[in-house]
Amino acid sequence: MLTLPRTVHDQMVAHCLVGLPDEACGRLGGDLATGTAVTCYPTRNLAASAKLYTVDPKEHLRADRDAEGSGNSIIGVFHSHTHTEAYPSPTDVAQAPDPSWHYVLVSLRDTEPMVRSYRIVEGVIEEEPVRLLAR
């Protein structure tokens, strides 16, 4: 299960909306053991594409240092799908580097953004519940 404070959820969705028409991406910092996000790190999509994303490596390093420096870890990655559902694509699965991460998809296909989260372990996708905290 991924636990998302409302502030982190809203920051993530806002970053995805601002990134239109391209896909947007970012990292989530938090507690790996409990799957609780505490910080949203919006990052630049170096691919600048509506169909692909590449997290800016420098911003990734900065996010990693900030998370580790505050006693947390990077616990996941989020990105938007602008015209498709919030489900990992074959590209997402092929390039999922860490089985301990939460892979969050924000679909902007419909009027209301849809947030879903997955674990991807050795190419196998498993959806997990997302629990929203009030703050």
Partner: peptide, 20 residues
């Protein structure tokens, strides 16, 4: 020296076919 995985992906062909 810091090692980090490159993080990338995207919808790419997601609309065409999914294995679910």
């Amino acid at each position: 020296l810091s090692i980090l995985p490159a993080v990338a992906g995207g919808a790419f062909a997601a609309g065409v076919h999914h294995q679910r």
